[in-house]
Design a protein around this nucleic acid. Structure first.
Ligand SMILES: [Zn+2]
Ligand SMILES: [Zn+2]
Ligand SMILES: [Zn+2]
Ligand SMILES: [Zn+2]
Lengths: 148, 148
DNA sequence: GAGACGAATGTTATATTGTAACCGCTGAGC
DNA sequence: GCTCAGCGGTTACAATATAACATTCGTCTC
């Protein structure tokens, strides 16, 4: 199979088969997937795929700003924003609200939050390259269901 | 050796030998340690210690608010504040500024940041239980040294 | 077109991080 | 003394991630 690099340069920046499959699996899942769950998805196309294939695809998707890694879960989730790929995390501060009950993840960007983070970094003579903010807790839906 | 639970209830909340050793190692290191590095330290006392010993000690220290886990490094660092143990991360927002050059970690708590995080959670009907904020980048020292 | 080269991907093996499950001691209560 | 619960030790293994090498494929040169 040839690269599909030439097929649609306008839709996205040249995803190969594994990368497209991984992104699709993440978008379809509705919850964060681990690297090995993504690997299972890749194996529907390429039954002999091994861990590095999944990790490479995920790394690429992250570099493109299409996917985020949730450090506190060792899992990956598709981005719902339009990040500036080169700038993921520095000027934007992306907050993930992770429900520990249902697994739902919401991605939030907030300018005041980002401003305050930049200011704190500056006060400490720190030059941020990337930032992760992960809030664990309970989402509204789960709070009203399991009320107690 | 008996538990030292009874020896000094006023200094700290009953650390056993492994816990005290782990905390000492983390404080002496000057940089975050992985669980297996802590395990190596424990083995100076108990040469046959196994991973669960280190993980249990670290879990206990984290529950007591004496140690933090850095999710983005899979590593552990001693707390430099006086956290309310039960409340680690909910009302306080602790930010870690991690230098990717020298490995130095600075722990920062900031009330405006915490306020903004609480507000964002509330707007999204989210009830936070714990929050991690980890900023990667370059500290002032490294920036002036390796200037280029 | 043949051959040399380099980038990307496939493949194997292994490193790192973390936990389940069971065992045995010890101390409290009876 | 006996029982039992809880803690910590121990074994074994699971889950996450990467190093290192082999192969493929496009491209450039001649
Ligand atoms: Zn995003
Ligand atoms: Zn929920
Ligand atoms: Zn702290
Ligand atoms: Zn530094």
């Amino acid at each position: 199979m040839p690269h599909d690099s030439h097929s649609k340069p306008q839709t996205g920046p040249a995803l190969n088969a594994a990368q497209a499959r991984a992104l699709g699996a993440l978008q379809a899942a509705g919850r964060p997937l681990t690297a090995y769950e993504v690997l299972d998805a890749l194996r529907e196309d390429q039954p002999r795929a091994a861990p590095p294939t999944a990790y490479r695809a995920l790394r690429r998707l992250i570099d493109l700003g299409l996917v985020h890694r949730l450090e506190s879960l060792n899992a990956y989730t598709p981005c719902v924003h339009e990040h500036d790929a080169a700038d993921a995390g520095a000027s934007q501060a992306t907050l993930f609200a992770i429900c520990d009950d249902c697994g739902n993840v919401r991605e939030i960007t907030d300018a005041p939050l980002a401003r305050r983070m930049r200011q704190l970094a500056e006060e400490g003579a720190f030059t941020p390259a990337s930032t992760i903010i992960e809030m664990h807790g309970r989402c509204g839906g789960c709070a009203s269901e399991g009320g107690a």
